[in-house]
Structures are given as structure tokens and as C-alpha cells.
Design a protein around this nucleic acid. Sequence first.
DNA 1: GAGTGGTCTAGACCACCTT
DNA 2: AGGTGGTCTAGACCACTCG
Lengths: 263, 263
Amino acid sequence: MAWYVLDRDSSEPLYQQLAAALRREIEEGRLPPGVAFPSERKLMARYHVTRATVRSALGVLKQEGRVESEHGSGSFVRDPKAERRRVEARAVGTARPRIGQAEEPAGEPSTERAFKIQGLIGDLTRRIPVTPWVAELLQVAPGTVVLVQEGTGIDVTGAPILARVWLHPVAEEKAQVREEELSGFWLPDLLKFKGLPGEEGEDVVEASMPTPHLKALLALPDGVPVLQLYRVMREQEQVVAVIESHLPGDMTTLVFPRVQEGF
Amino acid sequence: MAWYVLDRDSSEPLYQQLAAALRREIEEGRLPPGVAFPSERKLMARYHVTRATVRSALGVLKQEGRVESEHGSGSFVRDPKAERRRVEARAVGTARPRIGQAEEPAGEPSTERAFKIQGLIGDLTRRIPVTPWVAELLQVAPGTVVLVQEGTGIDVTGAPILARVWLHPVAEEKAQVREEELSGFWLPDLLKFKGLPGEEGEDVVEASMPTPHLKALLALPDGVPVLQLYRVMREQEQVVAVIESHLPGDMTTLVFPRVQEGF
DNA sequence: GAGTGGTCTAGACCACCTT
DNA sequence: AGGTGGTCTAGACCACTCG
């Protein structure tokens, strides 16, 4: 490993130079995924900088999702693409998240992540005011209190997931949904059963960095964003519900079939 | 502002306690978006910690996309949702990214970001080997060299964008695409002109943290992920091209119309 | 017990912005 | 000039993992 690359007269900060050097090592395959990094103390000695500088450099790579540290064992190269699973967007949120163990797809890397999931609450139903963004999608006044079912667990693909179903008040009345029924049913299933399938809406995707709560819940490493998928369920122009799903950005490849034009 | 919240006997690190305290200030509206934070030195004094600890706490909030620092002026609360624009996924990548100024949508917040864009290369055509992921989408052997047109600039929505069009070798031959033609045309337009519109594929979405290059190109603040949209263009089952777009995660809400079932 | 990363202190100097 | 964030040093102690 080349350690003479750091130029103290350069206007580029040392920690960025160091980050760039290590990034190059990774990209050019000299530090392959899964392999342990030189320890922070070794990097100090190699590059003649303090530990704070080394940690800044590693921090950059962590935030890029290229490096993951394990307290007590070392830092390791991550392959951000390694665990991705194709997820059909139209299937997301339609099934209740399962609790407990994830299936191990044969030949796939271990989904240790899925087991670490915290707060396996199964599902939980309550009445809360809509967030501004959900209000817009659900087409209700901001602050309207609606019935929400929240499910946490393992997705059908084996990835950890947090899903929320926001039920439109009109749909709640029309379908005569009672809270007690929901202990045994996933709301979208119940709606379909009651004749409000809601298959005509649109899907909306956003991405952002997780809140600490979500980061812990989905066991996300540093440098991993969250994909948010909002599925607007409509029936004859009327919004029935919004299914909000939060998916780990390093494990998810969302697939949408193309709409045929000219129909 | 309450500064007695830090508990030195707690097992929770001081910087995380501080981050949590500041996060609460933001969420409860005592530090509204756009307003200057207390300076790092003031926070030092208030909470009786060193500057490194203050900076760690602010670092957490920056990585969450809630805070942005400006060298010399101060740190400010960001509203991660403020500048979002609805983007129709089916329109992405179909038009050549424009160079220069973005339109200012009336009444919208200033898109200063769009002006800061670096490396306005317009478009650039070259032959390079496909990346593993594009190989899969394009259905060619890994490493195949294909014609790529890259466009950088302002999207039709006013957001900065990087778009790449990967042309399948068979489509290149069938449509008799010559590199010279591409100085005046955006490849998808040229293909449509030549009778290979490619309207039958699927759209694939991923999210990740930007590389330093992309971060600079799209003028992304810390804590903002990138949405990647890959549009697979097919014509009678044959893949014609893949349009790869990189969109700023804090400015983009991707909208997909729902496919009608049972046709 | 030795090695690893995680946290924290107490300073220093610099680059940048505002007034 | 004075205030702001950005970088860097030189230490210290702790929590965790592994052989």
C-alpha cells in the first residue's frame, strides 16, 4: 500500500486525500469486499497522521456506504450492491410483514441483518393525524385523524421493512372497518375482502437518510439511505388508502412494469 | 434552550445526547428551517463539552439531512422536503438535459442549487464497457463495449441531473446509428426518429449515497442520497437501450402510474 | 491480554463570511 | 476585526472481540 501519497502542502485536506487513496485501493480491487482494513493505528503510522484524521477519512467512506466498522473487530469493505434483491413494486405492502426469521435464499449472502431487527412489534393499529405529505396523497385536510395500521418485520423478499397503511375516513365508513377486526388481518387484505381493492392509484418513490429510529429498526449500517414507496390505492377515482413502505436502500431494487401508451 | 440535558453518567455518548437534544429542538419547531443554529462555540459553552463533541453531534444531524453548514456563516436547519418536485418517471431521460439556467417555478423556493452545477459538459458520446449492473439490464455479456451518450445539466423539472444512455449493439446496427449524428441529437430521440421507440420495458429504481464526483456534480449537501432510475427500453422483447438517470434525492419525488391489471 | 474501534479532552491554526 | 465553520495534533480512557 502506498503511503507517500499525502501532500501536506496541498489545499486538499489530509483526511480527504487519505479517503481518496483508500477509495482507490477499494475500487482497484486491492481491498476486496469483506476483507479487513488496516487498523486505524496502522493507518496512523503508515500515513503519519493522527487517529482523528484517520477516523475522518474512514468516516467519509462509511458515509459513502463503502466501509463498515465493527466495534472490537475492525473495519471492512462493503459491497453496496451485494445484497440487492429485485422487488416488484406492485407487491410491496400487499402482504403483512412477517415476524422472526427471514428465509435464506439459496446461495445468497447471509441475511444476518434481517435477524438483528429490533422492535418486532408485528402490527399495531391506532388513530393518528396524517403527516402533511400523506395528507396530500390521501387527499384529506392536513391534520385529519385517520386509522393507521403499522407493520414491522421481514418482507416477502427477506428484507426488513416498516409498512404503514393510512385509511381514508370515507373508505373506513364505506367498508365498515372496525379496529378489532384488524388484529387478525392486514388492512389491504381486509379491504379487498370487503370489495375495495383499490387498484387504480399511482406509486410514488422518494429517498432519504433514515431517522435514528428507522435506522435501528431496519438495522441499517451508516451510509445507507431508505427508499420510501407510497402506494396510493384508488377505487373509481376515490382514494381508499395509502400504503407507506420503508425499504433498506442497500437491499432493494424496485421494479416497475412499464405502462402501455395509447390505450 | 435546555442545556442541562446531558448526562455524563449515561451509557449514551454525549454527542448522541446532544444530537438528540438538538433534533428535538428542530422537530418541535424551536429551530425552524432556514434559521441559524447556535454557533459551535456557543454550544460548547452551553453544554460544557469540547468542540469535537459538538461537531460530532452536528455531524449526526448533517448525515440525517437535517442540518447544513456554511463555512464562515453558520449552520442552518434544512427542510428535507421543501424543494421536492413531482417527477413523472416516464418522462425522465427522454429529453436532453439542458445547459445553464434553470427555470424558476413561480412561488417556489430558489433553486440556487441548480446554478451551482459543475462540469456542464452538455453531452458526450463514447464507447465504454458496460458495468455489471447495466450488463444485466441491457442483456449483454459483462464487459461488452457499447455506445454511451452522457448528458449533464438541468432536468425539465429544474433539478440537476446526470443521464446516460447505453445503446444495445444490435440496436445500434439495426438503427444504423453513427456517432457523428449524436452531436445534434439526444439518443432516445434519434432512436424514435429511426423507428425504435422502445416503449415496452420496465423501470428500475435504486438509492445510494453519491460518489464524490456525483456529489459535486449535482451540488448535493451532506446527508442527501441519490435516486437512480434505470429505464429499460424494449421493442418487441428486444432490449434497445438502457437510460440511466441520477436524481438528487432531496429534490425528487418519482411518480409511477399504476399498471392496469387484467388486460 | 492484546488488539480493535468508540468517545472525549484541550488545545492550535486556517479559510471564509459579514460588518 | 471578529465571528463562523474546517482541519489537525497529541494525548487519554473506555467497550468490545478474539484467541
